[in-house]
Each structure stands twice: as C-alpha cells, then as structure tokens.
C-alpha cells in the first residue's frame, strides 16, 4: 500500500486534430508499459475536429495509477503544432520548469523558461511521406525525439509500441522514430 505520488510523471501532448495527437499518447502509454511502468492515457474528453487544438494526456508511474482527474500541470509536453505555445492556456498547463519536445526547425523565443528540445518532425514526416503534404503525420517522429529526451524510456520500447499500434506504413514510422531520435537537439 505504498504511495509514490511524487514519482508520478504527467505528460501532455499538444496538437491539432488530424496530427495523431491522441494516438501519440496511446503509443507512449504502451511504450512505458513495455518499459515496466503503469500508464494511464486519455484524450481531452469531448468532440474532436480536424484542425482544432487537441490535447491528450499520459500518466506514468511505477505503481497502478488511481488518480483519475485531468492533468492540470504537466511535467513534460510534446508539442506537435508549435503555434499552440501562443495559446493563453498553454503555459498554465505546465509546471514551471517543464521539459518540452517541440516540432520546430528553429528555436521558439516565446518559451525561454522551459527545457526545450527541438526536432523537425514535419520535415521528417514529409521526407518519409507520412500523411499528406498539407497534413503530415508527425506523431511518430515526435515519439522518437521524446525517447531521446525523457531519460526513462528506451528507443526499443518506443519502436515496439509503434509497431504494435500504427495501422499503416509501419516501416516509414519506424524510420521516423529513429531519425528524430538522432536529430533532436537541446537548445537554450
């Protein structure tokens, strides 16, 4: 009956409808599960529309997670769509020194207070032909970058989860994970 409240990690995935935001949280949940963690993932409840801002959530802990309220202050953010950082609800949804993995080829000046890691997931998705030109599917590349940054999840388990959960183009998605894992960079 031990409690490990402080060890629990809360992750929020920020994206837009159609980018694979909810699936990203689900794959990550499974990757952590393979890693031996208990996980709990859920979408922002309600109606989803293509293009509208979407968030998905993930809790990770060494023990079963009983907490079933929403996530209000995430320790880690995966930002699939960089324009969400300008939303008034963005900063309040993170702890002060949150770790961020951002889909962007350049540093975003608006968020100096966070530990920011950048990866050009859009570029990777376009190069590999994931999704369409107008709507590249960036979620798996983001997971590769996350695996490098998070420190508690192996690349192997991310790849295993991607292979299990991705319905199409498994090989391309695996390449996207690997490529992002290599190219993600910490920029102060």
């Amino acid at each position: 009956m031990g409690t490990t409240v402080s060890a629990m990690k809360e992750i929020t995935v920020f994206g837009r409808g159609g980018q694979g935001t909810v699936v990203a949280a689900e794959i990550l949940a499974e990757a952590y599960f393979h890693e031996g963690f208990y996980t709990q993932s859920f979408p922002s409840f309600g109606v989803e529309r293509r293009g509208a801002p979407v968030t998905a959530f993930l809790r990770v802990d060494k023990e079963f997670i009983y907490l079933r309220s929403m996530i209000y202050k995430a320790h880690t953010g995966l930002i699939l769509s960089p324009d969400v950082v300008n939303s008034p609800t963005f900063k309040p949804s993170l702890v002060g020194n949150a770790t961020l993995v951002i889909n962007s080829g350049r540093r975003l000046p608006e968020i100096p207070e966070y530990k920011c890691h950048y990866v050009d997931a859009t570029g990777i998705a376009l190069e590999l032909g994931l999704g369409s030109k107008a709507q590249p599917l960036v979620n798996t590349a983001m997971l590769g970058a996350f695996a490098r940054v998070c420190g508690d999840l192996s690349l192997e388990n991310v790849l295993k989860a991607v292979e299990n959960k991705v319905p199409l183009n498994v090989e391309k998605n695996v390449s996207a994970v690997k490529k992002a894992y290599k190219t993600v960079a910490r920029i102060e």
């Binding site: 689900e26 949940a29 599960f33 208990y38 996980t39 993932s41 859920f42 979408p43 409840f45 079933r68």
Partner: peptide
C-alpha cells in the same frame, strides 16, 4: 464515461 471508458491502462 470518458474518465474510464476512454482511458487506456494496462
């Protein structure tokens, strides 16, 4: 609904 129905866990 949602709190359990749409939440993924092992």
């Amino acid at each position: 609904g949602f709190f359990i129905s749409h939440t993924n866990e092992p």
